[in-house]
Every structure is written in C-alpha cells, then in structure tokens.
C-alpha cells in the first residue's frame, strides 16, 4: 500500500487503542465507580474514535484503493492528501486541548482545520472516482 495510506492507517490504529482505552475506563467506572474524573475523558474518547479512528481509516484505505489515474501521478497530486492528514490530526490535537487552553475559539479553529483537511482530501482524490472504462474490439 502507498506510504501515506500506511501512515493514515497506523495513526487510526493508535487512536483506536487510545479511544478504546478511555471508553473502557469510562464504562468500567460507570459500573463500579472508582474515579469521577474519568468522565472528563468522554469528549476525548468520542474525538479519538470518530475523527481519529473511523475517519482516518476511511481516508487511508480510500487513498490506497480508489482507481488510479492514467498519468505520471496515479494517485493525483498527493500534496492534497498529505495536507488532509496534517490538518485532521492538528484539528484533533487542538480540539482536545481547547477546554484546557483558555481560548474559546480554539475548538472552532480545530473544526475548521478538520473540515479543510477533509475537503482537501476530496479535492485531491475526486478525479479518481470514475466509471469503469473498457472497450470492445470487433473481430471478423
């Protein structure tokens, strides 16, 4: 698989590990309360699993699997997709930090960066979504 896909998917697995860990702590605490502060992990659990795990796995596999272009750059201008990786992950980091950083606009900035990142991925890979092309040759 291409290097960017490998990076996207490995990152998504790290988010899976962390997100599942936080979620399990929250559920266990729900059953047998041992640390009330655990509930503070809930937004991080959600962010890590929705944006970190699900979204990045989808982007990574899509970058790998989508039909290739018949050009020197079979996966299009890869800079769009690399930008997507950077922006989505920066957005996750900023969104986690937002409640603690004291800047009320940090969460909004995080979401804007993530939206731009996903839009960049769409722009960079849009042309790879094309119908099957084949030709018949008549033989006599």
């Amino acid at each position: 698989m291409p290097r960017l896909s490998s990076i996207f998917i490995r990152a998504s697995l790290m988010y899976l590990v962390l997100g599942f860990t936080f979620g399990s702590l929250i559920l266990a605490n729900k059953g047998v309360p041992f640390a009330p502060f655990i509930w503070a992990l809930l937004p991080i659990h959600i962010e890590f699993l929705i944006l970190g795990w699900l979204t990045q796995l989808a982007l990574g596999v899509a970058f790998w699997i989508l039909p290739r272009l018949t050009s020197n750059t079979p996966r299009g201008d890869e800079r769009w997709s690399w930008a997507a990786f950077a922006l989505v992950n920066l957005g996750i980091a900023l969104n986690i930090a937002a409640p603690y950083a004291g800047f009320i606009w940090l969460g909004l900035l995080a979401r804007i960066l993530q939206a731009i990142g996903v839009a960049a991925f769409a722009i960079g890979n849009w042309q790879r979504i094309y119908p099957l092309k084949f030709s018949f040759s008549a033989r006599q």
């Binding site: 590990v17 559920l27 059953g31 047998v32």
Partner: peptide, 20 residues
C-alpha cells in the same frame, strides 16, 4: 450488573487491542 459492565469494558478493550 455493576461488575457485568466492568467485564464488558475489559472485553471490548481487549477486542480493540487484539485487532490492532
């Protein structure tokens, strides 16, 4: 029921780690 939820948490956690 409380400990069943703890068991659920551990099992689900394991499934994620094992998949990774």
């Amino acid at each position: 029921g409380a400990w069943a939820l703890v068991a659920a948490a551990i099992l689900q956690w394991y499934s994620g780690m094992a998949f990774a």
